[in-house]
Simulated assay, not measured.
Amino acid sequence: MLRKLKWIMLTLLALILGLFLHYNLPQTDIVRIVGTSFRGMDLGWENQWAFSAPESGSNTANSASRDILFIDTVTPSGRPSVFRNEDTAWGWPPYFKFNSFDLQAAAGNLASTAEAPKWVAITHYGWRIQFLTIFPNAIKVRQVESPDVTIIPWGSIIILTVLALLAFLFWRMWAQFHERTIEPAMIEVEEALDAVDARADAAKAQARGTWGRFTAWLGTWRAKPRK
C-alpha cells in the first residue's frame, strides 16, 4: 500500500512539474499574421493568473481591467491562433520583456494576406484555453522563409539541460547526506530500540522468575492433604 501511494505521489509530482514546464518554457509556432489590435478586458479570478502585470510604467490602480495588445494569426492549416502581447517585466516567468509596444509594431509590419503570405515564427509561452479566455503571450516575432522551416528550440533545450544538471546535483547531495547522516542516525536508533527490547525481555524474564519463586514459596504454606 505504501509503495503504491509512493508511486501515485511521484506520478502526480511529475505531472505537475511537466505542466509547469510546458506552460512556462518558450515554444515557437509558424503562422501568418492577419492583424493586430488592443482590446479592453475585465479579468476574473478564473483567468487573471494567466495574464502578466500591466505594462511597465502604466497605471496599475485596477490591474483586473485594462487594455491588452493582441496579435491575430492563422496557421498554415488555416486555423486561427490569437496571441496576447504583454510585458513580463520583472515578474514570472522571467523573460524580462519590456518591449510589448515595439513587438506590436513589428507584428503589424509583418501582416500579410493569403494571396501573398509572409510566414512568421512567433516565440511564446502559455496556453490557449478558449472557455477561460486565456491566450499565450508572444515574446518574439521574426519572419521565416516558409511554413516548413525547421525551428530548433534552443531556449527550451538549454533550460531543460540546466534543470537536469541541477536536479542531478541535488540528488547527489541528498544521496551523500542520506548516506553520511540519515543512515547512521537510523542505525543508532535501531540499535537503541534493540537494546530497549533486550532490556525489556530481560526484565520480563526476571519478573517471571521472581513470580515463579514467589508462587513456589506460597505453595510451601499450603496444608498437606490428610491421609
Rank of each mutant, 00 (worst) to 15 (best):
L5N: 14
L5M: 11
K6F: 11
W7I: 13
L13C: 15
L19T: 07
L19K: 10
L19R: 11
L21M: 12
L21W: 08
H22V: 09
Y23V: 12
Y23L: 08
L25A: 13
P26T: 07
P26D: 06
I30A: 00
I30Y: 00
G35R: 07
T36Y: 05
S37T: 02
S37G: 08
G40P: 08
L43P: 04
G44A: 08
N47A: 10
Q48I: 15
A50C: 06
A50T: 07
F51Y: 15
F51W: 14
S56A: 12
A61W: 14
A64V: 09
S65V: 08
D67W: 11
L69Q: 10
I71P: 08
T73V: 04
T75Q: 07
R79K: 14
R79N: 12
P80Y: 08
S81W: 09
V82S: 04
F83G: 05
R84Y: 07
R84V: 03
R84F: 09
N85A: 14
T88F: 04
W92T: 05
P93I: 08
Y95N: 06
N99A: 09
N99S: 11
D102V: 10
Q104K: 03
Q104N: 04
A107H: 01
A114Y: 06
E115T: 03
A116Y: 12
K118T: 01
V120A: 00
T123N: 02
T123Y: 00
T123D: 01
G126L: 01
W127T: 11
Q130Y: 06
Q130E: 13
T133G: 04
A138Y: 02
A138E: 02
I139P: 02
I139Y: 03
R142H: 01
Q143I: 00
E145Y: 00
E145C: 01
E145S: 05
S146I: 01
V149E: 00
I151M: 00
W154T: 06
G155Q: 10
I157Q: 14
T161Q: 07
V162N: 05
A164S: 12
L169S: 05
M173P: 02
M173I: 11
A175K: 15
M186D: 12
V189G: 02
A195G: 12
V196R: 15
D197C: 10
A198Y: 10
R199T: 08
Q206P: 04
A207N: 10
R208D: 10
T210S: 11
T210W: 08
R213D: 10
T215S: 15
T215C: 15
W217F: 15
L218N: 09
G219N: 13
K224Y: 05
R226I: 14
K227G: 02
